[in-house]
Amino acid sequence: MPAYATAVFDLDGTLLDTLEDLMLSVNAALASQGLPPRTLDEVRRFVGNGIRLLVRRAVPAGTPAEQEAAVFDAFRAHYAAHCEDHTGPYSGIPELLAHLRDAGVALAVVSNKGDFAVQELVGRQFPGAFDAVLGECEDRGIRKKPAPDMVEAALARMGASREGLVYIGDSEVDVQTAANAGCPCLSVAWGFRSRAQLVEAGATTIVNTPAELERVLLGDTPRPPA
């Protein structure tokens, strides 16, 4: 029997390496307003709380609100057209998802990325792999992470109970989301945050590879410490 009945995954930095496309769209949007570009490491630090905060962090301090809004609109348009130029699953992730489905584990994705991009990316990169997929949808009264709302909405869509629930992510936002949802968190070491940052955020279980994550989820190995 699997160790968990339901696995809810973060998307960026957990299932998909999206960082280069995010950086390119950020810099295209900044350039459209004559603003300086950001580095890959800067964008890595800025992601995790949704695209509106990503843009707010990317524009220079003191940028007028109307110019920030123009950058946001330019980012959405560019990312919608280019979100898969360099994006793909981390090595071993497709096999992990297939093995979890074969074992009867219910699977969901919840992401603070705009829902338009989440649905596009998951539908194309992981067709048929997930039972529920949610991007940012605060206009529907579902607060973004680290509030527990997205996890709860995913459970409702799947008709799944909280028993046997686990949350998997790569950042401090994900650690806090799991805490707020009252479920265990498995943190992945291959994403957008370092092991030291995860430990500082309160991660208690960190896995190094998708194969190790699979063994923990299916109950084939003890949970590794942080």
Rank of each mutant, 00 (worst) to 15 (best):
L121Q: 08
W190I: 04
L96K: 01
D102W: 14
L24N: 09
R157N: 08
A106H: 02
E68V: 01
V118S: 13
M23C: 08
L165V: 00
V173M: 10
D21E: 07
R162F: 15
D174E: 04
Y4E: 00
L30W: 01
L53S: 10
A70S: 15
L24Y: 05
Q176G: 01
L11C: 09
L134F: 15
A108R: 05
V188F: 04
A106W: 02
D10N: 06
R45T: 08
A154F: 14
R57D: 03
E152Q: 15
E138I: 01
D220W: 08
T204G: 10
E138G: 02
D17F: 02
L217V: 05
Q197R: 11
P184F: 02
R195V: 11
N49H: 14
D73K: 14
A226H: 04
A61P: 12
V43W: 05
A28F: 14
M1T: 04
L54N: 05
A74L: 06
K145M: 07
G182I: 13
Y79W: 12
N112H: 15
F130D: 00
I142R: 14
D174A: 04
D21I: 02
S111Y: 05
P37F: 04
N180D: 03
T205M: 09
A98C: 02
R52D: 03
I93W: 01
A196N: 06
V133E: 09
Q176H: 15
A106I: 00
Q33G: 02
E214L: 05
V26R: 02
A70Y: 13
A211G: 11
L213F: 08
E212P: 06
R45E: 10
V110R: 05
L15Y: 06
A211R: 12
E68T: 08
F126C: 04
R140C: 02
A181S: 11
Q197H: 10
A3F: 00
H99M: 09
T39P: 10
L15N: 04
H86C: 07
S91T: 12
I168R: 00
R140E: 03
F46A: 00
R45M: 07
R143M: 01
T205G: 08
G141Y: 08
D131K: 14
S32C: 09
L11F: 13
N208G: 03
P222C: 04
G123E: 03
I142S: 14
A203W: 05
P127R: 12
A29G: 13
E66M: 08
L198G: 08
E20T: 07
R195D: 08
G164W: 02
G202S: 10
K113Q: 12
T221H: 05
T18C: 13
T205A: 15
A70H: 11
L19W: 15
V26F: 05
V8Y: 00
L186S: 00
F116H: 10
E138T: 06
I93D: 00
V173K: 03
A58P: 00
A211F: 10
G182K: 15
V118M: 13
P146I: 12
N49R: 11
E95P: 06
D139F: 15
G202Q: 06
N49F: 10
G128M: 07
T14D: 02
Y79N: 09
P60N: 10
E172F: 03
H86Q: 07
D174S: 03
A160Y: 13
Y167L: 07
F46G: 01
D170W: 01
R223G: 00
